[in-house]
Computed example of a mutant assay.
Amino acid sequence: MSKHSKHSQLGTAALQFLHDAGAEFEVLRYESHPGSPHGFALDAVEQLGVDPAALFKTLVVDLEHADPVFAVIPADSSLSLKRLAQAAGAKHARLLQPAKAQRLTGYVVGGISALGSKTALRVFVAEEAAVLPKMVVSAGARGVSVRLAPELFGELTGAVFAEITQG
Rank of each mutant, 00 (worst) to 15 (best):
M1C: 10
H4I: 14
H4W: 14
S5K: 15
K6V: 15
H7T: 14
S8N: 15
S8Y: 10
S8P: 11
Q9D: 14
L10M: 15
H19A: 10
A21I: 10
G22L: 11
G22M: 12
F25S: 07
F25H: 02
E26V: 04
E26T: 05
V27W: 11
L28T: 02
L28F: 04
L28W: 07
Y30N: 06
Y30H: 14
S32L: 01
P34E: 05
S36R: 07
P37W: 01
P37N: 05
G39S: 08
A41K: 01
L42A: 07
L42M: 15
A44R: 08
A44W: 07
A44S: 12
E46H: 13
E46D: 15
L48N: 09
G49W: 06
G49S: 03
V50Y: 03
D51Q: 05
D51V: 01
P52I: 01
P52C: 08
A53M: 04
A53C: 11
L55Y: 05
F56H: 04
F56T: 00
F56K: 03
L59A: 10
L59E: 08
V60P: 09
V61W: 02
V61A: 06
L63T: 02
E64H: 11
E64F: 13
H65P: 15
H65G: 12
A66T: 07
P68G: 05
P68D: 10
P68Y: 05
V69A: 10
V69H: 07
A71H: 08
V72G: 08
I73P: 02
P74F: 03
A75F: 02
D76M: 03
S77Q: 13
S77N: 13
S77L: 07
L79K: 10
S80G: 15
K82P: 00
L84E: 09
A85Q: 01
A87V: 05
G89Q: 00
A90P: 02
K91A: 09
H92C: 05
H92Q: 05
A93V: 00
A93E: 04
R94P: 09
L95S: 03
L95V: 08
L95D: 04
L95Q: 05
L96K: 00
K100R: 14
K100F: 08
L104E: 09
L104Q: 10
Y107A: 13
V108R: 12
V108Q: 13
V109K: 12
G111C: 09
I112D: 15
S117A: 14
K118M: 09
K118E: 12
R122M: 15
V123G: 11
V125G: 04
V125M: 07
A126S: 14
A126W: 04
E127M: 07
E128I: 15
E128S: 14
A129S: 10
A130D: 11
P133M: 08
P133F: 13
V136Y: 05
V137K: 01
V137H: 02
V137G: 00
S138R: 06
A139L: 06
G140N: 02
G140F: 08
A141Y: 03
R142N: 04
R142Y: 06
R142P: 01
G143V: 01
G143E: 06
S145H: 09
V146E: 01
V146C: 00
V146M: 03
R147P: 01
L148T: 05
A149M: 14
A149P: 02
F153D: 06
F153I: 12
F153T: 03
G154V: 12
E155Y: 05
E155R: 13
T157E: 02
G158Q: 08
A159H: 11
V160S: 15
A162M: 09
E163P: 12
Q166W: 11
Q166F: 06
G167T: 06
